[in-house]
């Protein structure tokens, strides 16, 4: 299926959900029960990394159900969309000077760190709600919980390495933030544009959308996105992992043939 038709199906899905939301059954829900909710749909449920992949933008469409037109008009609804990569263990190493050389001497291993963490928001994070709320929700690159593999290390050391971990992830573009990346297309429809770094890891990523009203968190919705290597890249990767011996022989054969052809092409003796 092409991206375009996928986007169409997703939009149809959103419209359907809007229709359901507007149906009389939902209308009976009492006003006090915070009736707003949020739905998101991805423009595609899989992204293929092809040979010419050098990063991409991912568009996520979403809708607010039962939004209050008055609040919407004053722009008091805020949406934060997060695309979180698969969790993996990470070793953070620190260099210190030894005999004049900079050498890795200390390390802390963290378990279940999302490989990537890309955020898009309607406004600057501090304008949406209080930092304490983000901390409570573990929302934002600086607030995601990173758990050390060994807990009995000095807490100050763990804090230092956790800061370094986020800093390095940001430097390699894997943790990113796009303020204004979420746009309201109408009172209830929005579009979020998230950044996929050129070194985005493959695996199942999770898109999560958080709805805030007047700075108060209302509702969350999530969807899955598979990031895969495309056919050729995937075949090479799988071959290297699963048939590593044959893969090695193949690499050697390729080198033999390339060197031999080079000799034929540029024959000098």
């Amino acid at each position: 299926m092409t991206m375009h038709s996928l986007r169409l199906t997703t939009l149809t899905g959103i419209l359907l959900s809007l229709l359901i939301a507007l149906s009389p059954v939902r209308a009976q829900v009492p006003e006090t029960a915070n009736p707003e909710s949020i739905q998101i749909g991805l423009s595609t449920d899989r992204v293929s990394i092809t040979a010419d992949f050098s990063g991409a933008d991912l568009t996520i469409f979403g809708a607010l159900d039962n939004s209050d037109p008055l609040i919407a008009r004053h722009g008091r609804y805020d949406v934060i969309v997060v695309l979180e990569g698969p969790p993996r263990p990470v070793v953070v190493r620190k260099k210190t000077r030894f005999l004049g050389m900079w050498i890795n001497t200390q390390s802390v291993t963290f378990v279940n760190v999302p490989v990537s963490y890309s955020v898009a928001t309607t406004r600057a994070l501090q304008d949406i709600t209080h930092p304490d709320n983000y901390r409570q929700m573990a929302l934002g690159a600086n607030n995601i919980t990173v758990v050390p593999a060994v807990r009995d290390d000095d807490p100050a050391t763990i804090r230092e390495f956790a800061v370094a971990l986020r800093d390095r992830k940001k430097a390699s573009d894997l943790f990113s933030e796009r303020i204004g990346g979420v746009h309201f297309l109408s009172q209830s429809l929005f579009r979020a544009t998230l950044h996929l770094a050129p070194n985005v890891p493959v695996g199942t990523h999770r898109a999560r959308a958080f709805l805030f009203k007047n700075g108060v968190f209302i509702k969350e919705s999530s969807a899955q996105l598979a990031i895969l290597k495309s056919g050729f890249e995937q075949r090479i990767f799988r071959a290297a992992q699963e048939h590593s011996f044959l893969y090695g022989l193949g690499a050697v054969a390729l080198a033999f043939v390339t060197g031999w052809i080079g000799r034929l092409v540029f024959r000098r003796d």
Binding site: R88, P89, V90, V91, V92, R93, K94, K95, T96, R97, G100, M101, W102, N104, T109, F161, A164, L165, D167, R168, K169, A171, S172
Partner: peptide, 15 residues
Amino acid sequence: DLFVRPASLYSLSSL
């Protein structure tokens, strides 16, 4: 590269 202080003292690697 060995003797000059690197831009960041920290590095990440997978297990």
